[in-house]
Design a protein around this nucleic acid. Sequence first.
DNA 1: AATGACCCCAACCGCCGACGG
DNA 2: TCCGTCGGCGGTTGGGGTCAT
Length: 371
Amino acid sequence: MGRSPCCDEVGLKRGPWTPEEDKKLRDYVQKNGHGSWRRLPKLAGLNRCGKSCRLRWINYLRPDIKRGNFTEEEESLIIDLHSLHGNKYAFCFLTQSFRPCFSTPCFSNRRWSTIAASLPGRTDNEIKNYWNTHLRKKLLRMGIDPVTHQPRTDLRVLPGLPELLTAANLVGGFTSSLNDPLHLQADAAHLIKLHLVQNLVQVLTSNPTPNLNQIIGLFGSAVLRNYRLNDVDVPSSRQLESLLRHLLHGSLLQRTAPMASSLSTQGWQSFVDSLHRSMPESSRSVDAGDQAAAAATDDLSSVNEGCLPTSDSTPPYLSSSPENMTKGEPITIDGSINAPYEAWDANLDDLDDLGYWKEILDQISSWPNTP
DNA sequence: AATGACCCCAACCGCCGACGG
DNA sequence: TCCGTCGGCGGTTGGGGTCAT
């Protein structure tokens, strides 16, 4: 228990300042300087504690205070400086908790005042408030963790983490080690996302006639919820369709292939087989890559027959040969990627939340297969 | 128009380091 | 060296404003 606050003294006023009090404080400081804040209230004729006077002067009455919205330059400077000066607390992997970190120079315990020193006319309190109400959310929207300034990884849903990490260790190809917790965390998150996406593909392709309106509905509600959580403008149904197309055609398969290839040839073959089985008998061709693309295109033709408008753009096709695929070489997307899909790359990052993916998989898995 | 949810920010609280006796 | 005082900091709160229903 620290010492009792000075405002506990009987009879001292607290709460919002009146214009009369502001005038008394301003007049006194401009005439005499603040001197001892402890003694100032009595000398200035104020029924306030010294701390309250100091705060009012520094954060509001000081003549060089800059009012109004933060400019873009100020915003980026704050973000840069926040990244540079770090946080008072750092995550301790030993205790699995945030602990004060004073030993490393980059972790300043005077973060806001240091940042404020670089922004003339702005107070540490103002910058702190602006960070908490605007910039933190802005970074989250950009897929950046506001604490670490690294791309976001969300490890809330890790029921299978030990197995996945074991698998990652066995197949290799990941950059982390147990002595490198940051890389370990990023790799684990990446691995799990790939795993979830692969499951999604398998669920979708193993269903002979997936109900795509259901999928759109699910993607729609999940996307909306995700956007609300992250304070992002809700996308239109057309954008949702574009997102779904992107997921099915490009990003999803592109992200899944390296994961599948890193696991085993057998696993990859079963993935290709499941894609093959999902296609109508008549359209099965020799080229498995084309088959995969055709399967996805078939799905989307159903999408277009549904409630959403069609897209102007042609989806990209997979260019890998069946030999390459069965050998486990990554599938690549050919060079004809259209601008709308590239434009959605950033928005896909907004969905970089494993809880979001798992929720989709859980719900899709629970649907009864259509005969 | 009424009401509840949400947001923002001025102000407060509790702690810490510096400093002087 | 110890202890008390003070200034300063970051985290948190709560009340007013705004928006949605």
